[in-house]
Design a protein around this nucleic acid. Structure first.
Lengths: 123, 123
DNA sequence: CCCAGGAGCAACCTGGGAGTTGCACTCCGG
DNA sequence: CCGGAGTGCAACTCCCAGGTTGCTCCTGGG
């Protein structure tokens, strides 16, 4: 199931897409700093409308980065570290993989080079 | 030089923006798999034009994720793990920070709740 | 010296995301 | 029961990133 060779995580792309927008990152920052806040409150700290904030929160929620809880007539949003952590791990794995491949390619290249220059006598 | 303490990385946003596009991720995948390839070759493995590939490679290069080397009349591109690793670490740190804040908020909330219900006698 | 395959440039088109406005609905307090 | 605060939904505008086409400019090989 979780053994997709390359490009595992399903949610990774939504997380990346969500994180790509600066406003959404600001939003996450505020959310992380203030704990549980309503969209209206957040809009007060940003140069955008409440509606825009709501939309962004929707995207972030779809990516699993935040979650909202209804309290009376308001909705308190809070940050959700799990999704971010998963993406971070995915990324780290990818980086390590690249490193591995690069090392391999480099070794092969060196070997090939050594192989292809018998006539040359560097000292 | 590249040592901003926390919240740091200037390049993080460009990396995230670069990674947000699926085509660019495919591109990185191919690049990681094949080592050193030209834009034209890459375009052959993708449903887009060579020009589109070139543009994407430009973005990826600006984000420090790839680098191109001129060899004769062609340009070989290769993947650059450093930037990705840095972003991965930044992300992991951020996730940990959120976790910390959440734990704190939770503790405070619990304390406050305990504080606010002296009249109730759950016996 | 010529030509062919590859890279670079510039103008152009287009879909979707970010943002706004306007209104209907819901919930709490007096 | 009524009014106001707060949220939810929908239509609309604007802008830009992704993609294309059509060239020109190198460069290397015969």
């Amino acid at each position: 199931m979780t053994e997709k060779p390359a490009g595992a995580a399903e949610g990774v792309d939504s997380v990346l897409a969500a994180l790509a927008d600066p406003t959404r990152r600001r939003l996450l920052d505020l959310l992380a700093a203030q704990g549980e806040v309503t969209a209206t409150t957040l809009a007060g700290s940003l140069p955008v409308t409440r509606q825009a904030v709501v939309k962004h929160l929707g995207v972030l929620d779809a990516a699993g980065l935040v979650s909202g809880t209804r309290v009376g007539r308001e909705v308190r949003y809070s940050v959700q570290p799990a999704a971010l952590g998963a993406t971070a791990r995915w990324m780290a794995t990818l980086a390590a993989d690249w490193d591995r491949r690069l090392a391999t390619v480099k070794r092969i290249a060196e070997a090939a080079e050594r192989e292809s220059r018998p006539p040359e006598t560097p000292r």
